[in-house]
């Protein structure tokens, strides 16, 4: 991946992991996060489908199976937008490293499989910046299926793609659904410049590869003001253990940039 042409003008970095369920991406992003934090980088982690506000609606809707492909797409876009506007963007503006377990590509893959129009789905997410690095953990279908299905007694309705009517058997439906999702991911590799990781490799080897790629991308990451601000916070904490609460909110100068996300 090119280090120079960035998809946004913020001082922060956006690194995302994508892949089918059972591809091992969550483990990898967790290890990456530990490593970055251990090296003193300001890291913010966010995952799919976790906005407090939208979560209750999504949960209710899924439970009652009220969603059509369009509302399924829009409610996830709402969830993403909430996290984007309140969490991801401010961190990027402040120069932090944002790690996202799933990003817009997850929506692209799922919504297309559910029958939405491709350009319509892409447009919904147009406000989101292009990540600096997007890792796609690619595994043969049987490998990821095996990882998920072993030791799991029951699959959730939407997780198994039961709403698509592919099969009345949840496990069979899940197989077909994951296969379709994988096709979509594979299609996106060249179009969106995804960095393909061979998810069949051992965890340690994958993590080393990932760190090497990230290190190259961070070569020109020079947010000294962020380090400094965090150091000050750390120092203040040592001096006054009573006021530990403010760890996250160092007085970081956010560059006055605005509205650059809409292409």
């Amino acid at each position: 991946m090119a280090t120079h042409k960035r998809g946004h003008k913020y001082p922060g970095r956006l690194i995302v992991v994508e892949g089918c369920d059972g591809s091992g991406k969550s483990t990898q992003v967790y290890l990456l996060r530990r490593w970055l934090e251990g090296n003193g980088y300001p890291v913010f982690f966010t995952e799919w489908n976790s906005s407090e506000l939208v979560k209750s609606a999504t949960k209710k809707a899924k439970k009652h199976r009220m969603l059509t492909p369009t509302t399924f797409s829009l409610i996830h876009a709402s969830d993403f937008a909430d996290r984007y506007e309140t969490l991801i963007l401010p961190h990027l503006q402040a120069g932090h490293i944002v790690l996202a377990d799933r990003y817009v590509y997850t929506a692209y893959a799922r919504d297309l499989v559910r029958g939405c129009d491709e350009s319509w789905v892409h447009n919904s997410y147009r406000f989101a910046v292009k990540p600096d690095l997007a890792f796609y953990f690619q595994a043969p279908l049987e490998v990821s299926l095996h990882r998920i299905l072993v030791g799991r007694p029951e699959l959730k309705y939407h997780e198994a793609g039961m709403d698509l009517g592919l099969s009345t058997d949840p496990k069979e439906s899940f197989r077909i659904f994951q296969g379709l999702i994988k096709q979509q991911y594979d299609r996106m590799v060249s179009r969106f410049g995804l960095t393909v990781m061979d998810a069949t490799k051992p965890i340690l080897e994958l993590q080393q590869e990932m760190r090497a790629i990230v290190m190259v991308d961070l070569a020109d990451y020079g947010n000294h003001h962020v380090y400094k601000a965090l150091e000050q916070v750390a120092a203040a904490e040592e001096l006054a253990p009573a006021i530990e609460q403010q760890t996250e909110h160092a007085p970081v100068a956010a560059p006055a940039t605005e509205g650059g996300d809409e292409k």
Partner: peptide, 20 residues
């Protein structure tokens, strides 16, 4: 809510009514 989020929630609302 952020503006984009609010737009999308209203859009979800309309799509739900339209289809259902």
């Amino acid at each position: 809510l952020g503006r984009t989020t609010l737009s999308l929630l209203y859009t979800t609302d309309l799509a739900d009514q339209l289809e259902n």
